[in-house]
């Protein structure tokens, strides 16, 4: 088992004919993901290695039964692409695109809330169920099928965490990068809930960073609703206030969103917090007992 995606996932790629879109489509196919369609307006009738391209998401869904979409569309056009996929009834959307204005995401998020769609991202590496399905830009080989869920606001730091787990012999059920933006499509809590209910997930590793209060809210959820062990790491203990640390969402504003506050909240919820990024895997291992 796993959450959100598995061997039955039929993926469509929005922006499949672009440089990034075509490169990562091939990487995903190579990993074993069932990519059934692509969408690029005006390019219907073309194909990428035999994957048919359609003008609209709706038609791609009708013709291929796609139930998930990954989006590689430029930020200015991305909200439109997301809403097109929501309107076509796609169950899981993964938005890789970085740089979507917050005002646009507020609108998109309010529409997502009224739909049955789950969106991962934007500004994220994607989601992978090792050995079964990879939707995104993460390197496949570092992952190992297993029973730990990973949720992270980062990209390469997630790879680092997964690599540590794999080297300790701990496999992963599903790994999700929720992205570094202030308004993500999906936050820690709904994914923690899915992992709690997933029979084959034994524990969860959470990787947070400075900015916002998503980690504090997750800590409350873990304390009240979760029976499975949770470990965590928070990046940015040495980050200065008022500076955007790469990710649009990684900023300590008005004295709020510091790593110290988050670490306190996580510890109070009984979560095993790794002080050092070198110990993320070990923290998970010790939390499993």
């Amino acid at each position: 088992m796993s959450i959100l995606i598995n061997e039955n996932t039929k993926l469509l790629v929005q922006g499949i004919t672009g440089g990034e879109g075509s490169f990562h489509t091939r990487q995903m196919v190579e990993y074993g993901t069932n990519v059934v369609a692509g969408v690029t307006p005006g390019k219907e009738g073309q194909d990428l290695d035999g994957i048919p391209v359609f003008n609209t998401v709706k038609k791609a869904v009708e013709k291929t039964g796609a139930n998930a979409s990954v989006i590689f569309v430029r930020a200015a056009f991305c909200p439109d692409a997301i809403l097109e996929a929501v309107d076509a009834g796609i169950a899981v959307i993964v938005t890789i695109t970085e740089g979507i204005p917050t005002r646009d995401m507020i609108k998109v998020k309010s529409i997502l809330n009224d739909s049955s769609t789950t969106m991962i991202g934007p500004n994220c590496p994607g989601i992978i169920t090792p050995g079964k399905c990879k939707i995104g830009i993460m390197p496949g080989p570092i992952h190992k099928p297993g029973n730990i869920g990973v949720i992270s606001r980062s990209g390469t730091l997630t790879y680092e965490a997964v690599d540590q787990l794999t080297k300790l012999g701990i496999g992963q059920s599903t790994v999700i990068g929720i992205g570094g933006d202030p308004i993500p499509g999906t936050n820690f809590i709904s994914l923690l809930d899915l992992f709690e209910k997933d029979a084959e997930t034994d524990g969860v590793l959470m990787i947070g960073e400075i900015g916002g209060t998503a980690e504090e809210e997750a800590a409350t959820f873990v304390k009240e609703k979760m029976s499975k062990p949770v470990a965590a790491f928070i990046a940015g203990q040495t980050a200065p206030a008022g500076k955007r640390m790469g990710h649009a969402g990684a900023i300590i504003a008005g004295g709020k969103g510091t790593a110290a506050e988050k670490i306190i909240a996580l510890k109070e919820a009984g979560i095993a917090v790794a002080e050092s990024p070198a110990d993320m895997g070990i923290a998970m291992k010790s939390a499993l007992g």
Binding site: T156, E160, G180, F233, G236, M245, G246, A250, S276
Partner: peptide, 20 residues
Amino acid sequence: VNGAGLAMATMDIIKLAGSS
């Protein structure tokens, strides 16, 4: 560093190792 999260984590581990 490549990636913002890993870059922050690298800053953190430098501090933990005794420098800044």
